[in-house]
Each structure stands twice: as structure tokens, then as C-alpha cells.
């Protein structure tokens, strides 16, 4: 599993907010970079990465809400914390229902922000690893021939080689060859591994 640097991205048009938040987060060893607009952040955006976005809703140009919607659409594994001003509760509620991780009112309460950033980072990490795993398993399945996929389905269903051979109308020896290839291509040490991988794909499909 490749490791991505975990990062907090602060996007705010206010200089002092960016620099004070960076100061705050770095005090607790959370690496942070900042951008003065959504447009400035987009080139640096890697949808599949571990990280947290701290986003001001009121910005010139692309608003925080627009960026949020875009990232959710892309299925980004980054988590988003919205910063709102006084009296923007309806907007915050909308942000949450649109897929934001959390919203924090200004003036910012430092400990609360750090706590939420950590939670968000954890969620991002999980989402990221799930996504990596899924991509990995999908890549392995794609290496299987159609016949091997059939055999794998039957193995996962818990059938013995003899039953599988009868089911597919081949001799048992052929099934044994297929089984070996499946285990090899799927890099599965045991049938249990195979079942887990099957589960991962199914979950994604569901």
C-alpha cells in the first residue's frame, strides 16, 4: 500500500486566517498548506489522497459550497470542514447534507478545530485505504479469465473441486488447475482471503 503524506488544506481569502490556522495546526504537528482561493487549490487537488480541507464559505470566485459539491461528485477521499461566519447556520446545514464532514463557526475555537481535523483525517485515511484496496482487488479480478471467474465464484461459495467439476462439466483435474491459477492471480493465501476480497467488491457494488 503506497503511503500518501497526510495534509490539511486551508482555503480562505483572508491572509490572517490562513496564517493563524497554519500556526495553530502546526503547533500540534498537523501539516498544513494554504490557498487564497478555490481556483488556486484545484491544480494541487488529488481526489484520491488522505487529507482535510478547511474551507471558508464566503470567498470571491468559486465559493466553498461549489468546491464541496465538486469534490463530493468526484468521490474524493478528502474530508471537508466548513468555516462559517455568524448567522450562516442554514448554509452550514446545507453543507453537511451535501457531504461536508463538519462545520465550525468563526471565531474559531482552536481545540475544537484540531479535534475535528483529526477525526476528519482518520475518516479520510479509512476512505483512502478502502479505495486503494478496492482498486487493487479489482485489478486482480481483471487478470482472471471468464472461466477462472466462474471457478472463483464457486470456490467462494464453498464448493469442493468435485462439485465444481460436475457443475462446469469438466474433469476434477481441470478444476484443480483453475483453482491454482485463481489463488495465484488473486494473490490469495487461503480461501478466506478470497472470500474477503469478494466481500470488498460486493460492498462497493452495493
Amino acid at each position: 500500500m503506497p503511503t500518501e503524506p497526510e495534509m490539511v488544506h486551508i482555503i480562505d481569502d483572508d491572509d490572517s486566517i490562513r496564517s493563524s490556522l497554519t500556526w495553530l495546526l502546526e503547533a500540534v504537528d498537523i501539516p498544513a498548506t494554504s490557498y487564497d482561493s478555490a481556483e488556486a487549490f484545484l491544480p494541487a487537488l488529488k481526489p484520491d489522497s488522505i487529507g482535510v480541507l478547511i474551507l471558508d464559505v464566503r470567498m470571491p470566485g468559486m465559493s466553498g459550497m461549489q468546491l464541496l459539491e465538486r469534490m463530493v461528485q468526484q468521490g474524493s477521499t478528502l474530508q471537508i470542514i466548513i468555516l462559517t461566519g455568524h448567522g450562516d447556520v442554514p448554509m452550514a446545514v446545507r453543507a453537511m447534507s451535501n457531504g461536508a464532514f463538519y462545520f465550525i463557526q468563526k471565531p474559531v475555537n482552536g481545540p475544537q478545530l484540531v479535534e475535528k481535523v483529526r477525526e476528519a483525517m482518520l475518516k479520510s485515511r479509512i476512505a483512502y485505504s478502502q479505495k486503494i484496496r478496492l482498486d487493487d482487488v479489482r485489478g486482480r479480478v481483471e487478470r482472471l479469465t471468464p472461466r477462472e471467474r466462474e471457478v472463483m465464484e464457486l470456490i467462494v461459495s464453498g464448493h469442493a473441486n468435485k462439485v465444481i467439476a460436475a457443475e462446469l462439466g469438466v474433469v476434477e483435474r481441470t478444476v484443480e488447475v483453475h483453482r491454482h491459477r485463481v489463488m495465484e492471480k488473486m494473490e490469495a493465501a487461503s480461501v478466506a482471503d478470497l472470500v474477503i476480497m469478494q466481500q470488498i467488491i460486493k460492498q462497493e457494488v452495493d
Partner: peptide, 28 residues
């Protein structure tokens, strides 16, 4: 009033964050 609140929020927010950052750094 709303604009005023938002505008005041910015420096207050910054001050608060700077202060909290200082505290944590001093602690460590």
C-alpha cells in the same frame, strides 16, 4: 450588523488561533 459581525470574526478568529497555537507550542 451582519457584515460587521463577519468582519469582526476574521481578526477575532485569527487572534484566537494564534493564541491557541502559542499555548500548545509553549506547552510542548
Amino acid at each position: 450588523a451582519s457584515g460587521l459581525a463577519h468582519e469582526l470574526n476574521q481578526p477575532l478568529s485569527a487572534i484566537s488561533s494564534y493564541a491557541q497555537g502559542c499555548i500548545w507550542r509553549l506547552e510542548s
